[in-house]
Structures are given as structure tokens and as C-alpha cells.
Design a protein around this nucleic acid. Structure first.
Lengths: 251, 251
DNA sequence: AAGTGGTCTAGACCACGGT
DNA sequence: CCGTGGTCTAGACCACTTG
């Protein structure tokens, strides 16, 4: 059972602002939904009904409905009709940025100290996170990123040499490893895990941390064309770094 | 300076698959960009040029270009032209979910213990995060969420009573505060901050934590219709909770 | 068969930016 | 002024679902 057609007083909800018609139609429909006049799963008037009700051509109605569908407000089924979508389960998003850009955007100084940058033989765990076999050559780098001379990130990275053979020969003062990798192997997908951890002794030294200072750990795997390019463990002192995110409903 | 018009061999890139024309046009353009034939900031043929090149009506070309613009591949400027967008700076996203849903999805048992649920007078800090004045009545709730009887979240929440006057009279065994608030005041936007912190003594008791165990703290403000509905501090034991995210490039 | 959405067209008018 | 994208229309044909 799908529900009855919404008896619409849409024409009344149409603003007379100077705006494109398809936008005014969209806005009118959204307001019907927002005000609860049209409820979830309820049927929306058909295109032809809207055409006669609003005195607008079908292509214009179609554009409004199509865009509202791609924005998640409506669901359309060919041969059946158009329906109000379920209220979205919200998905609040957090963006994880490039550290150097982020520091630059704050108008601060970024510096990076390289602690290690070499080829190693993959142990079983390292091989697993890169999708390679134990004993294969891989690249390993370890560096500290500073914001105005205060360490804010310890970057521990494994790189698949097939995807970035010149990784060891780059100048990482001018460009972060991530920026370089993005350029040579444009990422197609990624996955990351954020958690709170304690730093071990070595990590505390590199980051000049007190004992028991909690840290954010971001572990990130990045793919390009179906293969894993790199696995990174990014460790941030909890007192000096926060992730910030905004989100909007529906849209 | 914007660059020269791409000399197009688009017609060759048009697949002859049985698919809508606007989709084949989109695909052809994307492949030109992906293969580097059309580079960032370069000008794309105008709508009328594409009309004659591909023998397709302008409305169809327009739809293809419009959708590619909203997908981030192109940039259009009225009176000027259409251009290939800069390669996207990646934005890796993390989704922050509703705790009860998340636990249910894992097939585990969710339970919630209410420690406090009452009306209070806002102190200056509390008033600030809700966008109200000091001394106004606000609602405060404090609860622990359990996953299979193990505490995983301490939820400390302030609520704007104008936006949810019946907040205190809900049954939070059947529905989380967030679910209820979403229903009565559909959120239009939000902001959150994720950081690593240490729990204080009280918090450690509620969550049965060891001393020095790092925690994830998510502070979140949520808006509805331009007003702040609620401010929440969600504290997660680092050993029992991680944020997981996936992302895709460009698409 | 009737109603729905999905697509496409040819032509039109407009607002904008650059010449 | 011209060429650009932005919008709108009336009419058409199709594929799909339902009775």
C-alpha cells in the first residue's frame, strides 16, 4: 500500500519571488514536506497534475521533481508515481584534511622533519595492510609535522612501490607525502578509522608529550585503481588537534 | 587567462551503448577529462558547438553539462563559457551515526541508563552553546549507553526548551534523545568537534574506566530553522569505540 | 488500456560578460 | 554588439506498472 495522493494546495505555496520557476516549484514542494502537509511515503501529484495545477510546462515540473529526487526529498518510480521520501537518517560528516593545507589555512607555519625514509621488507602485518605478500619490498616513512614549531602530527606511512616507485626521491619540505601520492596515483577510494589512544614512549618523544596524554589516531588506507597505494597512521596530540565538521540536513 | 577551447573529438568518445543520450554525452566528457585530453581550467566546447558536433538538441547537451557541473567536473559561467574544474582536493568524510542504530546494526543489545533528566537554569557557558541568555530555563540530560551491558557512550546533553518543550516527558528506553529531537525539530545543520581527552573521575565511574584511559569526545551542536536545538557532549572509551569512514574520489 | 515517469526536440526569450 | 549559459515551452515518443 502506498498511500493516497496528496491533495495539494501547492499553488498557494508558490512564492512570487523573482526566481526561476523550477526553483519556486521545488521550494513549494519542500515547504509542503517540511510543514508536514505531505508526509513520508505519501504520493505526490503526478507531473501532468502539477502541470495543470501550476500552469507550468511539463519539462519544468520534471526538472524540479528530478532535482528534488537527487536531493533525497522524493522517490520516483516509473509507471507508479512520485512519493515523499522517508525522513533521512542523518549522516553527519567529518572531513579529514591534508595537514599542511590545514596549517597554511590557519596562517601558520608548517614544517616537517623526516625521521625515516627507506625501503624495507614487509612483515606479515605490513604486507596485509598494503595487500602485498610478506617479504616484498615496500617504502616506509616516518615524519613529524610542526605547526609554528609545535609538533602536531606523527605520520607513519607505508607505501606500495608499484604505485609510487619514486616515493623515496621526493622533497618533502615542499610537498607532503600525501600530496605527492595524490598526484602520481589519483585516489579512487579510501577508508579510515579514528580512535583515541595513548602514545608509546617513542611517540611521546617525537611529539614532546607528557605521559598519559591522550592522542587521536587516524589509520587510513587509500586505493587507486583497485590497488592499495598507502597505509598511514597519523597520530595527533589530543591537546593540540581537533577534527571539526559541519553537516547539513537533507541537501 | 582561461585557456583555449578544447579541440574535441568527442563524437569518437561517445559510446553507442543503448543508454540515454545525456548520459552518453556525460560519459564521453568525463572520459576526455579522465584521459587528460581536456585539462583543468581548459575551456569546453560551448553548448551550441556541442549541439552541432554531436547532432543532439541543446536541452540534452544542457542537461549533461548541468549535471556534470553539480557533480564537480565542470564550472560554468554565464556569458563566459564552460571549463574543466580543478582536480578535487580530496575530502575524506567520516559519518557519525546514531549510537542506538549503530549498535542494533551490529546485532548487539542496546540499553540506556538515565542518570539525570531535569530542567535547570543556564549558566553563562551553557547559555552560550545554546544561543540563549544566562538564567533561562533549559533541559539537561545525562545518560549512559550500553552495548551488550558494556558502557560505550556517556551522553551529556543540553536542550533548548523552545524547540522541544516535551523533552523531559519522553521514554528514552524506546527512543534515543537524538531520535526524538530529530522528529520534533528536523535538523537543518550541525557542527561537531572530535578530540581525544582523558575522562574525569565521575566520567570514569559512569563508564567503568581505568585511570588514564583515553577517550573520544564528540561535541555537537545541532540547528533547526536557524536556532540551536541541542548541544551534546558524547564521550566514548577509546578502547571500545572507533569512528569508521570511507570515501571515494570524484565519483 | 490508461496512467506514470524518462527522455528528447526545436525553438524561443533572457541575463550576463566581453568586444 | 555577439556569444555564452539559464530557462521555459509544447509536443512527442518510449518503457514501465497496474488494473
Amino acid at each position: 500500500m502506498v498511500g493516497q495522493t496528496a491533495i495539494s494546495q501547492l499553488a498557494a505555496a508558490m512564492s512570487d519571488q523573482p526566481a526561476p520557476i523550477y526553483q519556486r516549484v521545488k521550494q513549494a514542494i519542500v515547504s509542503q514536506i517540511a510543514e508536514g502537509v505531505w508526509k513520508a511515503r505519501q504520493r505526490v501529484p503526478s507531473e501532468s497534475e502539477l502541470v495543470s495545477e501550476l500552469g507550468v510546462s511539463r519539462m519544468t515540473i520534471n526538472r524540479a521533481l528530478r532535482e528534488l529526487t537527487s536531493e533525497g526529498y522524493l522517490i520516483r518510480m516509473q509507471g507508479v508515481g512520485t512519493f515523499v521520501a522517508e525522513a533521512k537518517g542523518y549522516t553527519a560528516m567529518l572531513e579529514v584534511h591534508n595537514i599542511a593545507e590545514e596549517i597554511a589555512q590557519r596562517g601558520h607555519q608548517h614544517r616537517c622533519k623526516i625521521l625515516q625514509l627507506k625501503e624495507i621488507k614487509a612483515d606479515p602485518e605490513q604486507a596485509a595492510v598494503l595487500g602485498l605478500s610478506t617479504g616484498q619490498s615496500i617504502f616506509h616513512s616516518l615524519m613529524v609535522h610542526y605547526e609554528n614549531e609545535l609538533p602536531v602530527q606523527l605520520e607513519d606511512r607505508l607505501v606500495n612501490p608499484q604505485m609510487a616507485p619514486d616515493y623515496l626521491r621526493q622533497d618533502y619540505d615542499s610537498q607532503t607525502p600525501y600530496t605527492y601520492l595524490m598526484r602520481v596515483a589519483p585516489l579512487t577510494a579510501g577508508e579510515h578509522i579514528v580512535e583515541a589512544v595513548l602514545a608509546d614512549t617513542r611517540q611521546r618523544q617525537y611529539l614532546s608529550l607528557d605521559e598519559h596524554e591522550p592522542c587521536l589516531l587516524i589509520r587510513r588506507q587509500t586505493w587507486s585503481e583497485g590497488k592499495i597505494v598507502t597505509y598511514a597512521r597519523l597520530l595527533y596530540p589530543g591537546s593540540r588537534y581537533k577534527l571539526l565538521g559541519r553537516f547539513k540536513g537533507h541537501g
